[in-house]
């Protein structure tokens, strides 16, 4: 589904991603872990198509298509979803209006008729249950005045609405209490199928207790330095990242 080869990304002339490789197949869940400032969020934003991110080398193929040829909205309509680490507040735009516009643009792209008002509201009610979203939330402006937990729930809710093939969740667990974490993780699990894939970016093994990954990758200095199964996450939790840094240093010497 997703094939990243030797990706190098710079922001304002500074190299952030440096030779990143990853293969993701349908039905898989990949966890990317790693210390702060190693390029995890940059990777997520580059896949989603954020401006100012200069791809200096490498390629990303998504379902066989070159991702760099697509505007962010096209990537979304093609089935890529980014769950933001810091969801943006948009005062004055209601979630209903926001999601209705998004869903109908997705439908238009697929050659489908726009949803009627009532069909849309029904869909919203249904998907809200996935993340136990309170009813009143939907009449509020996008993320405005939301608590950290509400913002993250709202991200998963949007994911449920858009039914992506590939979802990248950028530190969706940060700032969540245990209950919210469980709800968010359950939401993700409900949406897992054999046809879609997830890339879960996190600092902590805690989230991976709920969302069981098929693969765990450790990212350091803009690339993956170690990959393994879910047990790698436990090892990291226990030992921290220092042993990986040490391993790397030993290798280089």
């Amino acid at each position: 589904m997703l094939s990243i080869k030797n990706l190098k990304v710079s922001i304002n002339g500074k190299k952030i991603i440096n030779g990143f490789n990853l293969e993701v197949k349908a039905g898989e869940v990949h966890a990317i872990m790693g210390p702060n400032g190693t390029g995890k969020s940059t990777l997520a934003s580059a896949i989603a198509g954020k401006e100012n991110y200069v791809i200096t080398e490498g390629s990303i193929l998504y379902k066989g298509k070159n991702l760099f040829d697509m505007a962010p909205e096209i990537r979304s309509r093609e089935g890529i979803f980014l769950g933001f680490q810091y969801p943006v507040e948009i005062p004055g735009v209601s979630i209903t209006n926001f999601m209705k516009t998004a869903v109908n643009e997705h439908r238009k792209y697929k050659g489908l008729e726009p949803l009627t008002g009532s069909a849309f509201l029904k869909l919203m009610e249904e998907k809200k249950k996935v993340v136990e979203l309170q009813a009143k939330l939907s009449n509020r402006s996008v993320n405005e005045g939301f608590s950290g937990g509400e913002k993250k729930k709202n991200e998963i809710f949007q994911m449920a609405m858009l039914e992506p093939s590939l979802a990248i969740l950028d530190e969706t667990d940060s700032g969540l209490d245990i209950d919210a974490l469980r709800i968010v993780a359950n939401g993700v699990n409900k949406l897992r199928t054999k046809d879609n894939a997830f890339i879960v970016i996190t600092h902590y093994q805690r989230l991976l207790d709920y969302i069981i990954p098929d693969f765990v990758h450790v990212m350091y200095d803009g690339r993956i330095v170690k990959s393994g199964g879910k047990e790698l996450a436990f090892e990291l939790e226990e030992k921290g990242y220092d042993w990986i840094k040490k391993e790397l240093e030993e290798k280089s010497t």
């Binding site: 979803f81 933001f84 943006v88 516009t101």
Partner: peptide, 13 residues
């Protein structure tokens, strides 16, 4: 930031 957020949900620019 808001524009990118919205576009990342499939909304045209």
């Amino acid at each position: 930031e808001a524009l990118f957020y919205m576009r990342s949900r499939g909304i045209s620019e």
